[in-house]
């Protein structure tokens, strides 16, 4: 009896979690004629892939996807390059500076974006970097950096200090020990942080909305929103199709790192 009620509850959860996703998929497979009809159904009457092709015609999805890719790659590489040395220092040394830096990571979560984006926008405008992808990369690095630092210093801490010191005893300098001993062990953590930063940038909407105004430089999330507007029902199919396609890279990368992200989140949650 108890088992049965548990299954009923679990099923209810699964329905709640899955139904919007199923509806998105279903809408993406419907013909315009079916969309215009009354009484929409879960299963498309004549499933079609035409929406996926149409989506490319409606908006510059390929260009937007390419720009998103460039921005996300650049942001991820830059974030990790900047965060890696600092995270090593944070993990290995003790002192007030470390406390301040880690405290900052937590505090920065509380502040609303508006307090950061207005000054950044003013600076970018001074430098003539608004409406450019370079400007957006700068903003994305800023916004991913605290969490990347947090993740990476956790990975550094999981590399036993003894290994480094043994290398130092064997005559390697500290830098040498870092490069030849720590770096290989840290590689999976670095990859996870890279992927996390990539997803953050790929998914990011608000800063892109502020920085990019010209349709020619817009990233994928902005382009997707342009699908809406005074919407005719016939455009919903391509919109659903484009949304699905935009989600694929995030889902794949997320699947790779989710186990690591969980432990990172846990570390943050328990200590926070």
């Amino acid at each position: 009896m108890r088992r049965i009620s548990q299954y009923v509850a679990l099923l209810a959860y699964m329905v709640f979690l899955a139904f919007p996703l199923v509806w998105l998929l279903s809408t993406s497979l419907k013909t315009p004629q079916e969309m215009a009809g009354l009484d929409p159904t879960w299963i498309p009457a004549e499933p079609t892939l035409a929406n996926f092709a149409d989506a490319f015609g409606e908006q510059d999805l390929v260009g937007a996807g390419a720009r998103s890719l460039v921005v996300a790659l650049a942001s991820a590489l830059l974030t990790v390059t900047v965060a890696l040395p600092a995270s090593y220092a944070l993990a290995r040394y003790r002192g007030t500076l470390k406390q301040v830096a880690l405290g900052w990571v937590l505090v920065s979560q509380v502040f609303p974006f508006i307090l950061i984006i207005i000054p950044l926008f003013m600076v970018l405008r001074q430098l003539n970097l608004t409406n450019t992808l370079v400007g957006l990369v700068v903003v994305h690095v800023t916004f991913t950096l605290p969490f990347a630092l947090w993740m990476l210093q956790g990975y550094v801490r999981s590399v036993p200090r003894e290994l480094e010191e043994a290398a130092a005893v064997d005559g390697a300098g500290r830098m040498r020990a870092i490069v030849s001993v720590v770096a290989p062990l840290l590689a999976p953590g670095v990859v996870a942080t890279l992927l996390f930063s990539f997803i953050s940038s790929w998914n990011e909407f608000l800063f892109a909305l502020v920085v990019l105004k010209d349709p020619d430089v817009m990233t994928l999330p902005l382009t997707l929103v342009r699908f809406t507007g005074p919407e005719g029902v016939s455009r919903l199919g391509p919109l659903a199709a484009a949304s699905l396609m935009a989600t694929i890279p995030s889902l794949i990368f997320f699947a790779i790192i989710q186990r690591r992200l969980r432990s990172g989140l846990m570390a943050g949650a328990v200590k926070g």
């Binding site: 929409p40 997803i199 999330p221 989600t247 989710q258």
Partner: peptide
Amino acid sequence: AMPPVVIGLMWRLVYHPDAGI
């Protein structure tokens, strides 16, 4: 894992007065 924009658009489809579920 989903972009917030896609989540928002998806729920627009769900709540759509004519074509929503």
